[in-house]
């Protein structure tokens, strides 16, 4: 039978020899092993100074993206809140007033958008559900805090800062965009049908 690892050993119940019964050779072997590791290169990453590189698919703190003109993309459709398995997202919709076109892309926008970071499981379903390419999970970690209420992130913490936008190009690939918009995919067809 093919073994799954190269290090597996078949257990046997054969009687131990006298030398084996002394256990001393086995203990010496163990001591040699630990001594070998004593001088080995350490694998520790010293966190605040060194940071481990995240995988491209890492899902950290969310961001609400703006479009090319700096207007918020979110239209408060609520699909992310529906998709969220942890029920971490809440929002309040509001109507765009005349003159606010530079702030909000669509006629309807989220006046309040909150994610409870203690409930969030960072599954990324909100990102997948979003039809407007507004919410993305980034490679940033959620900061620690001493009080629970500070973990409910509002728009102040979620919306992309104007002057230095957060890079989500790794997650906003052409494939994902196509997946969401291509008319060949059934889910997009269903959406358009129901809308009609």
């Amino acid at each position: 039978m093919q073994t799954l690892t190269t290090r597996s050993k078949v257990a046997s119940n054969k009687k131990m020899t006298f030398v084996e019964k002394l256990y001393l050779p086995a203990i010496m072997g163990g001591m040699a092993l630990t001594l070998k590791h004593f001088f080995k290169k350490k694998v520790t990453i010293q966190y605040p100074e060194q940071k481990r590189e995240f995988a491209p698919v890492f899902r950290g703190q969310h961001v609400l993206k703006r479009d090319e003109n700096g207007a918020e993309r979110c239209t408060a459709c609520g699909l992310c809140a529906v998709a969220c398995p942890a029920e971490a997202i809440t929002m309040t919709a509001a109507e765009r007033k005349p003159g606010e076109e530079a702030l909000y892309r669509e006629e309807k926008y989220a006046s309040v958008y909150e994610i409870n970071m203690l409930r969030c499981i960072f599954c990324g379903l909100c990102e997948e559900a979003c039809p407007k390419e507004a919410i993305f999970l980034t490679d940033r970690m959620v900061d620690t805090d001493y009080v629970r209420k500070n973990f409910i992130y509002g728009k102040d913490k979620l919306v992309d800062p104007l002057n230095n936008p957060i890079d989500v190009s790794k997650r906003e690939t052409r494939e994902t965009r196509e997946f969401k918009t291509h008319p060949e995919f059934t889910h997009n067809k269903l959406n358009t049908k129901s809308l009609k």
Partner: peptide
């Protein structure tokens, strides 16, 4: 320290 070194830590 010894424990850490033997477990490949710092």
């Amino acid at each position: 320290k010894v424990a850490a070194f033997m477990q490949d830590r710092l």
